Amino acid sequence: MELTKNLTHAKLFKSLVVIVLGSIALTISAKIKIPFYPVPMTMQTFVVLFLGISLGHKIALATISLYLIEGIAGLPVFSNSPEKGVGLVYFTGPTMGYLIGFLTACYLASKIKIDDNFFVVLFKLIIATSTIYILGLIWLGTLIGWDKPIFALGAKPFLLAEIFKIMLLALLTKQIIKIKKFI
């Protein structure tokens, strides 16, 4: 009985460490900007999908949730914080839909299986990433008005970078899934 209790505590501690480290990785991915035309690219969506694939939906959702809570609480974890604000004010700004989309994307990415072929993985990653943009565009349109060129402002500049990240992840997915055994 005591051994089972200790193993449960050890597993919980391990999960908490992974969640915190995942949140740190997501923060770092938000801060590193890669020069990309016409808009600089961050690796946030890559890390969101990576977390879903490698950690499974429970730990990945907990990781993304921690990241969002940190940002809402005022920690400068988001891509353009503290330069463009922090906390709830920043969160409810133009990027809120995208940030919420991280939750759906990591969940859907967690459904990729090791026996999925490359094209199935690619399709699932496209769907997962699309949820980030769909939620992001819905919120952006609601916030700034539907009379604006929402797609041109909130998705088009990022599509080439997303294709690159999705292709890279699709190529690495089999190896990433193997990480689950060690987590």
Rank of each mutant, 00 (worst) to 15 (best):
151 F>C: 05
151 F>D: 00
151 F>G: 03
151 F>V: 14
151 F>N: 06
151 F>R: 09
152 A>F: 07
152 A>N: 06
152 A>I: 03
152 A>Q: 05
152 A>S: 13
153 L>K: 12
153 L>P: 08
154 G>N: 04
154 G>F: 02
154 G>D: 00
154 G>C: 04
155 A>R: 03
155 A>E: 01
155 A>Q: 04
155 A>W: 08
156 K>A: 12
156 K>T: 14
156 K>Q: 09
156 K>I: 10
157 P>M: 09
157 P>A: 01
158 F>C: 00
158 F>E: 12
158 F>A: 12
158 F>T: 05
158 F>N: 08
158 F>K: 11
158 F>S: 07
158 F>H: 14
159 L>A: 04
159 L>K: 02
159 L>Y: 04
160 L>P: 06
160 L>I: 15
160 L>S: 13
160 L>K: 10
160 L>N: 08
161 A>G: 15
161 A>R: 00
161 A>M: 09
161 A>I: 01
161 A>H: 01
161 A>D: 05
162 E>F: 08
162 E>S: 13
162 E>M: 09
163 I>Q: 02
163 I>K: 10
164 F>W: 07
164 F>R: 00
164 F>P: 01
165 K>C: 02
165 K>I: 00
165 K>T: 02
166 I>E: 09
166 I>A: 10
167 M>C: 12
167 M>Y: 13
167 M>V: 15
167 M>E: 14
168 L>A: 14
168 L>F: 13
168 L>C: 15
168 L>N: 13
168 L>K: 06
169 L>A: 09
170 A>V: 02
171 L>S: 09
171 L>A: 15
171 L>W: 05
171 L>D: 03
172 L>N: 13
172 L>D: 06
173 T>P: 02
173 T>C: 08
173 T>L: 04
173 T>I: 05
174 K>W: 08
174 K>H: 11
174 K>Q: 14
174 K>F: 09
175 Q>S: 15
175 Q>T: 11
175 Q>C: 07
175 Q>H: 12
176 I>A: 02
176 I>S: 07
176 I>F: 09
176 I>D: 03
176 I>C: 07
176 I>G: 05
176 I>E: 00
177 I>P: 05
177 I>L: 14
177 I>S: 04
177 I>T: 10
178 K>F: 07
179 I>L: 08
180 K>V: 07
181 K>A: 06
181 K>G: 07
